[in-house]
Amino acid sequence: MHPLAPVRPRQATPERPVGVDRVLLVLKELGRHPQAVSLDELARKVGLPKSSAHRALTALRRAGFAEQDGPGRYRLGLELVRLAFEYYEHYDERTLVLPALQALVERFAETAHFARLDGGEIVYVAKVEPPKRHALMSSRIGGRNPAHCTGLGKAMLAHVLADDDAVEAFVDEHGPLVRRTRRTLATAAELAPELERIRCRCYALDDEESEEGIVCIAFPLFLASPKLPSGAISVAALAHRTPRAALEAAAGEIVSLIERHLGPVTR
């Protein structure tokens, strides 16, 4: 072989993970067992021989990423927890999501938002508009809108309000919910089935429910927790220029663009 010829890295396969892949498999599986897990069960879960699982645990324990909790039982180490919290303290979600927003604007030539849920409202954290194609919207960075009538808000509420009782409690606490347009869903009876539809299809739609003439599609983002969204991303448009049906038809492409920049954070 020529000394400058590229060396092909050894490829790991789902059937036979190798080297660092084994360590990462074991690390991820440990994260699913906060009360610790035995070596036998761990090896079975990740599909490795006990000897391989044990070697991976040894490497993780050296780094402080795993620790032994009684004879033959293991869990995540406090060093990993410390690193995770240190990272999260300096975590800037706005900087993280901006490349995804910019990619969406470049692709669709419409406005992209990132917002967080705060009680009964959303707070806009980031907004990117297409050059020379602005649309007059009420959204502004740091501004707020009611969660129940925005795509961003409904995308998050669908996972925060898990059942009809939770929706009723939300409406009781934050109601009476304002009807921004004739299409706004402002009662628990209207909102609950809409949130169920969002959970089923994995995205929310705003069909001129917040502002006349403005439609959007929004996706919850699970950046920090696998259960509760950290925020949501949307593509918002003038209805006469990009109809709601066109946004909905592009749902799969939008998810692909988001996850190309952020990883598997949608659901």
Score class of each variant (00 low, 15 high):
5 A>R: 10
6 P>D: 11
7 V>P: 07
14 P>T: 02
15 E>C: 00
17 P>S: 04
20 V>F: 13
21 D>L: 08
21 D>R: 12
21 D>M: 08
21 D>C: 05
24 L>W: 04
26 V>Y: 00
29 E>M: 11
32 R>E: 11
34 P>Y: 06
34 P>W: 06
35 Q>K: 13
38 S>K: 04
39 L>Y: 03
44 R>I: 04
46 V>T: 04
47 G>T: 03
48 L>Q: 08
48 L>K: 07
49 P>F: 03
53 A>S: 03
53 A>W: 01
54 H>Y: 13
59 A>V: 05
59 A>D: 04
60 L>H: 00
68 Q>Y: 00
72 G>Q: 00
77 G>L: 01
78 L>S: 14
79 E>V: 14
81 V>I: 13
85 F>V: 15
87 Y>P: 08
90 H>W: 05
92 D>L: 12
93 E>V: 14
94 R>G: 13
95 T>E: 15
97 V>W: 08
99 P>Q: 02
101 L>G: 04
101 L>W: 03
103 A>N: 02
107 R>H: 11
108 F>R: 04
116 R>V: 09
116 R>Q: 11
121 E>D: 15
122 I>G: 09
126 A>Q: 03
127 K>I: 15
129 E>H: 08
129 E>K: 13
134 H>W: 13
135 A>K: 11
136 L>Q: 13
141 I>V: 15
145 N>Y: 07
146 P>G: 09
149 C>Y: 04
152 L>W: 01
163 D>T: 08
168 E>P: 12
169 A>T: 14
169 A>W: 11
171 V>F: 10
173 E>Y: 07
176 P>Q: 05
178 V>D: 10
178 V>G: 05
184 T>I: 07
185 L>M: 10
186 A>F: 03
189 A>P: 01
190 E>N: 02
204 A>W: 06
206 D>V: 00
206 D>I: 00
207 D>N: 14
209 E>D: 00
210 S>W: 13
214 I>V: 15
215 V>R: 10
216 C>Q: 01
216 C>E: 03
216 C>Y: 01
217 I>E: 04
217 I>H: 02
222 F>H: 07
224 A>C: 03
227 K>N: 14
228 L>F: 04
228 L>H: 02
233 I>G: 06
236 A>W: 06
237 A>C: 09
240 H>K: 13
248 E>W: 01
251 A>E: 09
253 E>Q: 15
254 I>P: 10
264 P>N: 09
